[in-house]
Write a protein that binds this DNA or RNA. Structure first.
Lengths: 113, 113
DNA sequence: ATGATAGTTAGCATCATGGCTAAGCATCAT
DNA sequence: ATGATGCTTAGCCATGATGCTAACTATCAT
């Protein structure tokens, strides 16, 4: 039971920081080095490295080191659990709306009898 | 620039806690009192109240007090910015995939000439 | 008017987060 | 072999998040 929740928590938490979202947006255009990712943020390298670790631990990106260069790339499927959760949430909400509507219709019928 | 990002940050942060997600799931079935929400969590009332405040500040729920009872209800549209961000992210990713594919096709053509 | 119920407020302890600097290590170019 | 480059590690600091208890307020029932 908890495994699933933990995954979502990691994902949502990783996405809750604007710097991390901007890194993801940058990576959506293609892989990049750590330094490339740090430049537009105005943050120091160790700070950016930490954000990268958070993204990687959430499974949102992968990284690989070639020589002294670490290249980062997104993992697009990683967002699937988030989508699923949103869809599930919406489904429940809509099911409830349907029940309310059915109830309202029945109430109208009862009144007209 | 920041306004948009702030909204997403609040939303993602609110969703990053399993207790808060369980509250949302419960509320998807219909409005509930604070105490109703606290019971399944095993957490004390003040703690749950705080989670509720976070959800409300993110715009994910609304609350109203009638007498001594505060009733909480979800705001389904509140998740729209999250969906939009996900869709946008996916669109960028797919656009890049298309470019890669076009590149690969062009490379194959070049070779066969 | 008394007591039970439902929330609220205040304040505390603890740990996580996000930023930094300074120093270290590995690799590449010369 | 030396220096520049790119990343990594360690450690500090300030702030914020999550849980709690205790005490307070406001309402409802009797």
């Amino acid at each position: 039971m908890a495994k699933h929740h933990q995954e979502l928590s990691l994902l949502f938490h990783a996405l809750s920081d604007p710097t991390r979202r901007s890194i993801l947006t940058r990576l959506a255009e293609g892989p990049a080095r750590v330094t490339d990712l740090s430049e537009p943020t105005g943050l120091r390298l160790p700070t950016v490295m930490r954000h990268i670790s958070v993204l990687e631990e959430a499974g949102l990106i992968t990284t690989a080191k070639d020589g002294r260069i670490r290249t980062c790339a997104i993992v697009p499927e990683a967002l699937d659990p988030v989508r699923s959760w949103l869809d599930q949430q919406r489904a429940m909400w809509e099911a409830r709306l349907d029940r309310l509507e059915a109830f309202a219709i029945k109430a109208m019928k009862d009144r007209t009898q």
